[in-house]
């Protein structure tokens, strides 16, 4: 798509649409980053900020949908233009979901901030960092139309899945050690799951970019590292419930 359209306003509209995606991607990245920091710092104010800002992403999605639908109706795009415009609809939906996960993480961060800290919380920033790297690479790849970068990021999602599976086991073990940890640990588990889902949506964007650039979808299946669905953690000793009851 080196050449400009004969109708210049068409090219301008396309540029405006991709700029909206770029801006929305930046906001989504910042939301995930802030949410993870709120968990790590046990900062309820920061978390509240994330929840409040989620509306911005929703607004971006509405704007992008409206603009894309308008262009589909009025320009009747073909070939590369068609792929470009349809992809913005998909990417906006992915980014909006990422925003929802960030907001959910923030809500749980507010709860966690009121509870005594639990040890596995240390794993969250690590997952958060990886997820942010993947998102950044995917969004940069979108801006530069850099397919290699997108595919490399797409592959890194497996690392994220591995991190999630190991965190899952750790949290489960911790819950079994002391039932008083269960509330906080459940929130951690959901936070980790949310980050894992953010990674999945980032890989969706990489796949969409592949379609935009090449014209067909990524053929090979994405490497899957999340085996937590099959994880079983058995307690080392008998349930501590009986002795607890005796004490009270």
């Amino acid at each position: 798509m080196s050449k400009e359209h004969i109708v210049r306003s068409y090219s301008e509209e396309l540029r405006r649409l991709t700029t909206l995606i770029t801006q929305m991607g930046g906001v989504a990245e910042a939301q995930v980053d802030t949410a993870v920091r709120a968990v790590a710092r046990r900062d309820a104010d920061l978390a509240a900020l994330v929840i409040k800002s989620d509306e911005r992403l929703d607004q971006y999605e509405r704007d992008i949908d409206a603009e894309a639908i308008r262009m589909l109706a009025l320009r009747q795009p073909m070939a590369g233009d068609l792929r470009e415009i349809v992809s913005t609809l998909k990417i906006a939906a992915d980014l909006e979901r990422i925003g929802d996960y960030a907001a959910n993480i923030a809500k749980r961060a507010m709860v966690l901030a009121q509870m005594p800290p639990v040890r596995p919380a240390g794993g969250i920033p690590r997952m958060g960092k990886l997820v942010q790297e993947i998102m950044k690479d995917v969004l940069d790849a979108y801006i530069d139309r850099n397919l290699d970068k997108a595919i490399a990021a797409w592959r890194r999602d497996e690392e994220l899945d591995d991190l999630y599976t190991s965190l899952f086991r750790e949290v489960l073990t911790y819950m079994m050690e002391d039932p008083r940890n269960i509330t906080a640990c459940t929130h951690l588990l959901f936070i980790a799951k949310n980050l894992e889902r953010v990674g999945d949506h980032a890989t969706n964007i990489a796949e969409t970019l592949h379609f935009v650039v090449v014209g067909h979808s990524l053929k090979t299946a994405r490497p899957k590292g999340d085996t937590s669905s099959f994880a079983v953690v058995t307690p080392q000793c008998g349930p501590p419930a009986a002795s607890d009851q005796e004490e009270t």
Binding site: M1, K3, E4, H5, I6, P77, M78, A79
Partner: peptide, 18 residues
């Protein structure tokens, strides 16, 4: 042809970049 033309000239024509 209309979603993924192979030739640059086809692409240019159908997307109005001719």
């Amino acid at each position: 042809i209309f979603t993924n033309p192979r030739d640059e000239r086809t692409h240019g024509y159908i997307t109005g970049r001719y």
